[in-house]
Protein backbone atom coordinates (compact mmCIF):
# COMPACT_ATOMS: atom_id res chain seq x y z
CA UNK A 1 0.00 0.00 0.00
CA UNK A 2 1.39 3.39 -0.98
CA UNK A 3 -1.13 5.79 0.54
CA UNK A 4 -3.69 6.17 3.27
CA UNK A 5 -6.47 8.20 1.69
CA UNK A 6 -9.50 6.75 3.42
CA UNK A 7 -10.91 3.97 5.57
CA UNK A 8 -13.23 3.07 2.70
CA UNK A 9 -10.25 1.83 0.69
CA UNK A 10 -8.85 -0.38 3.49
CA UNK A 11 -9.62 -4.03 4.12
CA UNK A 12 -10.33 -5.43 7.55
CA UNK A 13 -6.90 -7.06 7.47
CA UNK A 14 -5.18 -3.74 6.65
CA UNK A 15 -6.91 -2.09 9.61
CA UNK A 16 -5.99 -4.92 11.97
CA UNK A 17 -2.34 -4.71 10.90
CA UNK A 18 -2.28 -0.96 11.57
CA UNK A 19 -3.90 -1.34 14.99
CA UNK A 20 -1.58 -4.18 16.04
CA UNK A 21 1.45 -2.22 14.92
CA UNK A 22 0.18 0.84 16.78
CA UNK A 23 0.11 -1.13 20.00
CA UNK A 24 3.87 -1.75 19.70
CA UNK A 25 4.39 1.96 19.07
CA UNK A 26 2.36 2.84 22.13
CA UNK A 27 4.92 0.92 24.21
CA UNK A 28 7.68 3.07 22.71
CA UNK A 29 5.87 6.21 23.89
CA UNK A 30 6.26 4.96 27.47
CA UNK A 31 10.06 4.68 27.23
CA UNK A 32 12.55 7.28 28.40
CA UNK A 33 13.80 7.66 24.85
CA UNK A 34 10.66 7.95 22.78
CA UNK A 35 12.35 8.28 19.43
CA UNK A 36 13.20 5.38 17.12
CA UNK A 37 15.46 5.58 14.07
CA UNK A 38 13.03 3.68 11.81
CA UNK A 39 12.49 6.43 9.21
CA UNK A 40 15.82 8.24 9.49
CA UNK A 41 16.64 10.10 6.30
CA UNK A 42 13.02 10.24 5.13
CA UNK A 43 11.33 13.58 4.63
CA UNK A 44 7.72 14.45 5.40
CA UNK A 45 5.85 17.54 4.36
CA UNK A 46 2.75 18.57 6.26
CA UNK A 47 0.59 20.31 3.73
CA UNK A 48 -2.29 21.97 5.53
CA UNK A 49 -4.73 23.97 3.43
CA UNK A 50 -7.08 24.28 6.39
CA UNK A 51 -6.37 25.44 9.92
CA UNK A 52 -5.49 22.65 12.32
CA UNK A 53 -3.70 22.61 15.61
CA UNK A 54 -4.10 19.19 17.13
CA UNK A 55 -3.99 16.97 14.07
CA UNK A 56 -0.99 18.84 12.77
CA UNK A 57 0.77 18.73 16.14
CA UNK A 58 0.06 15.03 16.48
CA UNK A 59 1.39 14.26 13.00
CA UNK A 60 4.44 16.43 13.55
CA UNK A 61 5.33 14.78 16.85
CA UNK A 62 4.72 11.29 15.38
CA UNK A 63 7.00 12.21 12.46
CA UNK A 64 9.73 13.38 14.84
CA UNK A 65 9.42 10.24 16.97
CA UNK A 66 10.11 8.25 13.80
CA UNK A 67 13.25 10.34 13.09
CA UNK A 68 11.98 11.89 9.85
CA UNK A 69 12.82 15.40 8.71
CA UNK A 70 9.71 17.54 8.83
CA UNK A 71 8.65 20.39 6.57
CA UNK A 72 5.56 22.43 7.36
CA UNK A 73 3.68 24.11 4.61
CA UNK A 74 0.54 25.99 5.49
CA UNK A 75 -1.62 28.17 3.35
CA UNK A 76 -1.30 31.72 4.65
CA UNK A 77 2.48 31.64 4.21
CA UNK A 78 2.59 29.77 0.94
CA UNK A 79 2.53 30.65 -2.72
CA UNK A 80 -0.99 29.26 -2.94
CA UNK A 81 -2.11 32.76 -2.07
CA UNK A 82 -0.08 33.91 -5.04
CA UNK A 83 -2.28 31.80 -7.30
CA UNK A 84 -0.27 28.63 -7.74
CA UNK A 85 -2.42 25.62 -8.63
CA UNK A 86 -2.67 22.67 -6.27
CA UNK A 87 -1.04 20.44 -8.86
CA UNK A 88 1.96 22.76 -9.21
CA UNK A 89 2.34 23.14 -5.45
CA UNK A 90 2.43 19.39 -5.00
CA UNK A 91 4.78 18.79 -7.91
CA UNK A 92 7.13 21.44 -6.54
CA UNK A 93 7.13 19.75 -3.17
CA UNK A 94 7.75 16.39 -4.78
CA UNK A 95 10.79 17.85 -6.56
CA UNK A 96 12.34 18.37 -3.11
CA UNK A 97 12.38 14.59 -2.87
CA UNK A 98 9.89 14.10 -0.05
CA UNK A 99 8.82 10.61 0.96
CA UNK A 100 5.52 11.44 2.66
CA UNK A 101 2.89 14.10 2.07
CA UNK A 102 0.43 14.58 4.91
CA UNK A 103 -2.43 16.63 3.55
CA UNK A 104 -5.49 18.40 4.86
CA UNK A 105 -7.75 20.22 2.44
CA UNK A 106 -11.23 21.71 2.55
CA UNK A 107 -12.23 19.92 -0.65
CA UNK A 108 -13.12 16.25 -0.60
CA UNK A 109 -10.97 14.04 -2.80
CA UNK A 110 -7.83 16.19 -2.87
CA UNK A 111 -5.62 13.53 -1.19
CA UNK A 112 -6.82 10.96 -3.74
CA UNK A 113 -5.96 13.33 -6.58
CA UNK A 114 -2.49 13.97 -5.19
CA UNK A 115 -1.85 10.28 -4.48
CA UNK A 116 -2.43 9.50 -8.14
CA UNK A 117 0.05 12.15 -9.22
CA UNK A 118 3.08 11.67 -6.96
CA UNK A 119 5.41 8.85 -6.00
CA UNK A 120 5.50 9.91 -2.35
CA UNK A 121 3.16 8.25 0.14
CA UNK A 122 0.11 10.43 0.77
CA UNK A 123 -1.64 10.43 4.13
CA UNK A 124 -5.05 12.07 4.36
CA UNK A 125 -5.28 14.30 7.44
CA UNK A 126 -8.85 15.29 6.60
CA UNK A 127 -10.44 16.16 3.27
CA UNK A 128 -13.58 18.28 3.14
CA UNK A 129 -16.57 16.37 4.47
CA UNK A 130 -15.20 13.07 3.17
CA UNK A 131 -12.76 11.28 5.50
CA UNK A 132 -10.26 11.64 8.34
CA UNK A 133 -8.83 8.12 8.39
CA UNK A 134 -6.16 8.45 11.10
CA UNK A 135 -8.80 9.79 13.51
CA UNK A 136 -11.00 6.75 12.89
CA UNK A 137 -8.01 4.45 13.39
CA UNK A 138 -7.11 6.07 16.70
CA UNK A 139 -10.77 5.92 17.76
CA UNK A 140 -10.88 2.20 16.96
CA UNK A 141 -7.59 1.66 18.79
CA UNK A 142 -8.93 3.49 21.85
CA UNK A 143 -12.20 1.54 21.88
CA UNK A 144 -10.46 -1.82 21.49
CA UNK A 145 -8.08 -0.91 24.29
CA UNK A 146 -11.06 -0.45 26.65
CA UNK A 147 -13.59 -2.93 25.27
CA UNK A 148 -11.48 -5.69 23.73
CA UNK A 149 -13.12 -5.64 20.32
CA UNK A 150 -15.53 -3.69 18.10
CA UNK A 151 -17.85 -6.44 17.00
CA UNK A 152 -21.35 -6.16 18.50
CA UNK A 153 -20.61 -2.95 20.43
CA UNK A 154 -23.30 -0.29 20.52
CA UNK A 155 -21.60 2.90 19.43
CA UNK A 156 -23.51 6.19 19.50
CA UNK A 157 -22.13 8.98 17.33
CA UNK A 158 -23.68 12.30 18.31
CA UNK A 159 -23.75 15.65 16.56
CA UNK A 160 -23.13 17.11 13.13
CA UNK A 161 -22.72 13.90 11.14
CA UNK A 162 -23.40 15.68 7.86
CA UNK A 163 -20.30 17.87 7.91
CA UNK A 164 -18.10 15.52 9.90
CA UNK A 165 -15.34 13.64 8.09
CA UNK A 166 -14.48 12.04 11.44
CA UNK A 167 -17.95 10.50 11.61
CA UNK A 168 -17.73 9.24 8.02
CA UNK A 169 -14.43 7.47 8.63
CA UNK A 170 -15.65 6.12 11.97
CA UNK A 171 -18.81 4.75 10.34
CA UNK A 172 -16.85 3.02 7.57
CA UNK A 173 -14.49 1.46 10.09
CA UNK A 174 -17.03 0.43 12.71
CA UNK A 175 -19.29 -1.04 10.06
CA UNK A 176 -16.45 -3.18 8.65
CA UNK A 177 -15.98 -4.65 12.12
CA UNK A 178 -19.66 -5.30 12.81
CA UNK A 179 -20.38 -2.66 15.46
CA UNK A 180 -23.96 -1.40 15.86
CA UNK A 181 -23.80 2.28 14.98
CA UNK A 182 -26.37 4.80 16.18
CA UNK A 183 -26.32 8.25 14.67
CA UNK A 184 -27.86 10.89 16.91
CA UNK A 185 -28.50 14.52 16.05
CA UNK A 186 -30.93 17.01 14.53
CA UNK A 187 -32.51 15.82 11.25
CA UNK A 188 -30.83 18.67 9.42
CA UNK A 189 -27.39 17.32 10.32
CA UNK A 190 -27.81 13.62 9.61
CA UNK A 191 -27.22 12.49 6.04
CA UNK A 192 -28.79 9.47 4.41
CA UNK A 193 -26.49 6.56 5.06
CA UNK A 194 -27.54 3.22 3.65
CA UNK A 195 -25.76 0.72 5.87
CA UNK A 196 -27.38 -2.17 7.68
CA UNK A 197 -25.21 -1.49 10.75
CA UNK A 198 -26.51 2.08 11.10
CA UNK A 199 -29.61 3.29 12.95
CA UNK A 200 -30.69 6.95 13.20
CA UNK A 201 -32.09 8.64 16.31
CA UNK A 202 -33.33 12.22 16.52
CA UNK A 203 -34.09 11.86 20.25
CA UNK A 204 -30.81 11.64 22.11
CA UNK A 205 -32.22 9.83 25.16
CA UNK A 206 -33.46 6.92 23.02
CA UNK A 207 -30.21 6.65 21.13
CA UNK A 208 -28.02 6.52 24.22
CA UNK A 209 -29.85 3.66 25.90
CA UNK A 210 -27.43 0.81 26.66
CA UNK A 211 -24.67 2.32 24.51
CA UNK A 212 -21.12 0.99 25.09
CA UNK A 213 -19.41 3.94 23.46
CA UNK A 214 -20.50 7.57 23.04
CA UNK A 215 -18.57 9.50 20.42
CA UNK A 216 -19.31 13.21 20.59
CA UNK A 217 -18.57 15.37 17.57
CA UNK A 218 -17.56 18.99 17.62
CA UNK A 219 -20.34 21.37 16.70
CA UNK A 220 -18.83 23.48 14.03
CA UNK A 221 -19.77 26.86 15.38
CA UNK A 222 -18.57 28.44 12.16
CA UNK A 223 -21.58 26.82 10.49
CA UNK A 224 -23.94 28.47 12.96
CA UNK A 225 -26.41 30.83 11.39
CA UNK A 226 -26.96 28.66 8.34
CA UNK A 227 -30.14 27.31 9.87
CA UNK A 228 -28.96 23.81 10.78
CA UNK A 229 -30.02 24.37 14.40
CA UNK A 230 -31.61 27.34 16.19
CA UNK A 231 -28.99 28.19 18.84
CA UNK A 232 -26.11 26.60 20.73
CA UNK A 233 -28.18 26.73 23.93
CA UNK A 234 -31.02 24.84 22.34
CA UNK A 235 -28.54 22.46 20.77
CA UNK A 236 -27.10 21.57 24.16
CA UNK A 237 -30.59 21.06 25.58
CA UNK A 238 -31.43 18.54 22.84
CA UNK A 239 -28.16 16.90 21.84
CA UNK A 240 -25.57 17.87 24.42
CA UNK A 241 -24.08 15.17 26.64
CA UNK A 242 -24.54 15.83 30.35
CA UNK A 243 -24.41 13.57 33.41
CA UNK A 244 -28.11 12.72 33.32
CA UNK A 245 -27.86 11.49 29.74
CA UNK A 246 -24.58 9.67 30.34
CA UNK A 247 -26.40 7.54 32.91
CA UNK A 248 -28.74 6.25 30.18
CA UNK A 249 -25.81 4.46 28.58
CA UNK A 250 -24.19 1.38 30.07
CA UNK A 251 -22.44 1.89 33.40
CA UNK A 252 -19.07 1.17 31.82
CA UNK A 253 -19.70 3.24 28.69
CA UNK A 254 -16.79 5.35 27.47
CA UNK A 255 -17.04 8.92 26.21
CA UNK A 256 -14.92 10.09 23.28
CA UNK A 257 -14.39 13.37 21.44
CA UNK A 258 -12.00 14.13 18.57
CA UNK A 259 -11.35 17.64 19.88
CA UNK A 260 -11.36 20.54 20.06
CA UNK A 261 -14.26 20.42 22.52
CA UNK A 262 -16.87 23.11 22.94
CA UNK A 263 -17.66 22.70 26.62
CA UNK A 264 -21.29 23.56 27.31
CA UNK A 265 -22.32 23.21 23.67
CA UNK A 266 -21.98 19.53 22.81
CA UNK A 267 -20.55 18.21 26.08
CA UNK A 268 -20.76 19.36 29.69
CA UNK A 269 -17.59 19.90 31.66
CA UNK A 270 -18.36 17.27 34.29
CA UNK A 271 -18.76 14.61 31.57
CA UNK A 272 -15.64 15.70 29.72
CA UNK A 273 -13.60 15.40 32.92
CA UNK A 274 -15.31 12.28 34.26
CA UNK A 275 -13.65 8.90 34.73
CA UNK A 276 -15.62 7.56 31.76
CA UNK A 277 -14.04 10.10 29.42
CA UNK A 278 -11.07 8.78 27.41
CA UNK A 279 -10.60 12.01 25.46
CA UNK A 280 -6.99 12.53 26.55
CA UNK A 281 -6.08 8.89 25.93
CA UNK A 282 -7.32 9.39 22.38
CA UNK A 283 -4.67 12.07 21.98
CA UNK A 284 -1.87 9.74 23.10
CA UNK A 285 -3.17 6.91 20.93
CA UNK A 286 -3.23 9.25 17.96
CA UNK A 287 0.56 9.47 18.10
CA UNK A 288 0.97 5.69 18.17
CA UNK A 289 -1.46 5.19 15.29
CA UNK A 290 0.17 7.84 13.11
CA UNK A 291 3.62 6.37 13.76
CA UNK A 292 2.31 2.94 12.79
CA UNK A 293 0.76 4.25 9.57
CA UNK A 294 4.00 5.92 8.48
CA UNK A 295 6.02 2.85 9.33
CA UNK A 296 3.75 0.51 7.39
CA UNK A 297 3.57 2.77 4.34
CA UNK A 298 7.35 3.04 4.22
CA UNK A 299 7.76 -0.73 4.33
CA UNK A 300 5.54 -1.24 1.35
CA UNK A 301 6.27 -3.91 -1.18
CA UNK A 302 7.08 -2.12 -4.44
CA UNK A 303 5.70 -5.00 -6.50
CA UNK A 304 2.32 -5.01 -4.81
Amino acid sequence: MKDLVGIKELSKGDIELILNTASSFKDILKRDIKKVPALRGKTVVNLFFEPSTRTKTSFELAEKRMSTDVLNFSVPTSSVVKGESLFDTVKTIEAYGVDFIVIRHSSSGVPHFIARNVNASVINAGDGINEHPTQALLDAFSIIEKKGSLSGLKVAIVGDILHSRVAKSDIFLLSKFGANIRLIGPPTLIPDIADRNVEVFYEMDNGLEDADVIMMLRIQIERQGRGFFPSTLEYFRNWGLDMRRLKLARKDAIVMHPGPMNRGIEISSDVADSSQSIILEQVTNGLAVRMAVMYLLSGRNEDA
Binding site: P37, A38, Y295, S298
Partner: peptide, 19 residues
Protein backbone atom coordinates in the same frame (compact mmCIF):
# COMPACT_ATOMS: atom_id res chain seq x y z
CA UNK B 1 12.45 -3.89 13.24
CA UNK B 2 12.52 -0.14 13.96
CA UNK B 3 16.31 -0.16 14.08
CA UNK B 4 16.96 -2.09 10.87
CA UNK B 5 18.90 -0.65 7.98
CA UNK B 6 16.76 -2.20 5.24
CA UNK B 7 13.32 -0.63 5.82
CA UNK B 8 11.72 -0.15 2.41
CA UNK B 9 14.17 -2.57 0.76
CA UNK B 10 12.71 -5.76 2.16
CA UNK B 11 9.94 -7.44 0.22
CA UNK B 12 7.70 -8.51 3.06
CA UNK B 13 5.44 -6.22 5.09
CA UNK B 14 7.26 -5.38 8.34
CA UNK B 15 5.70 -6.63 11.58
CA UNK B 16 6.62 -4.82 14.78
CA UNK B 17 6.62 -7.19 17.75
CA UNK B 18 6.79 -6.47 21.45
CA UNK B 19 9.85 -5.15 23.21
Amino acid sequence: SLYRDDIGIRKEQPVVRKT
